[in-house]
């Protein structure tokens, strides 16, 4: 865990400096922390924007506020099979093209509604040529929700996780359960 943090800081120091507003990712350094993926700082930023569209900030923090993109990259890098990793990389790399082709401009220039609509389109596309976009978005949605709900922020400040769940009750009437609504 330490090694990755160190690599991550290093990437921020080195890679972060060459952040260029360009779609030509080849000019950027690859972040070494994710050795199974080819991730540049701008791709990572794009991933953060997509995650933020899936779970936006509102009354409480959103996905990008808690840097869910780090978690997504760790999970894809460490826990996914090679073909899934490849779909993820190719979907992420091709996402700006997909955005231009489908929504008419790059993702960053879309408003919130347009961003949502683009991602929903990508999540449900059945076009063979967009399979990587779909798989990439499905993985991203899965890890965004997992990373968000199982984050330190949610588990300590929003819905505190209890290590001691209490005595077992085997016949609780659902109607009697009082839960306070959390406004997202």
């Amino acid at each position: 865990m330490k090694r990755r943090d160190a690599l991550r800081s290093l990437a921020l120091i080195t890679g972060g400096l060459v952040l260029v507003p360009s779609c030509d990712f080849s000019k950027e350094d690859i972040i070494n922390a994710y050795q199974n993926l080819k991730i540049t700082p701008s791709l990572k930023q794009l991933l953060a924007d997509i995650a933020e569209t899936i779970i936006p900030a509102g009354n409480i923090k959103g996905a990008a506020d808690i840097e869910v993109q780090d978690f997504i990259l760790v999970m894809v890098n460490d826990c996914m099979e090679e073909d899934a990793r490849n779909s993820f990389s190719s979907g992420l790399t091709g996402f700006e093209d997909f955005s231009k082709k489908t929504a008419g401009s790059s993702f960053g220039q879309l408003d919130q509604k347009q961003k949502e609509s683009l991602i929903l389109t990508g999540l449900s596309t059945e076009e063979e040529s967009q399979k990587d976009i779909r798989d990439f978005l499905r993985m991203t949605k899965r890890f965004t929700t997992q990373g968000f709900m199982l984050s330190e922020y949610i588990q300590t400040q929003v819905k505190p996780y209890s290590l001691i769940p209490g005595e077992y009750k085997g016949d609780v009437l659902i109607a009697d359960i009082k839960t306070e609504r959390i406004n997202g």
Binding site: T53, G58, T145
Partner: peptide, 15 residues
């Protein structure tokens, strides 16, 4: 219900 995305999904995940 984990369908969809956006604030609506966030509300459903939290509740």
């Amino acid at each position: 219900d984990t369908g969809g995305i956006g604030l609506d999904l966030k509300e459903r995940l939290l509740n």
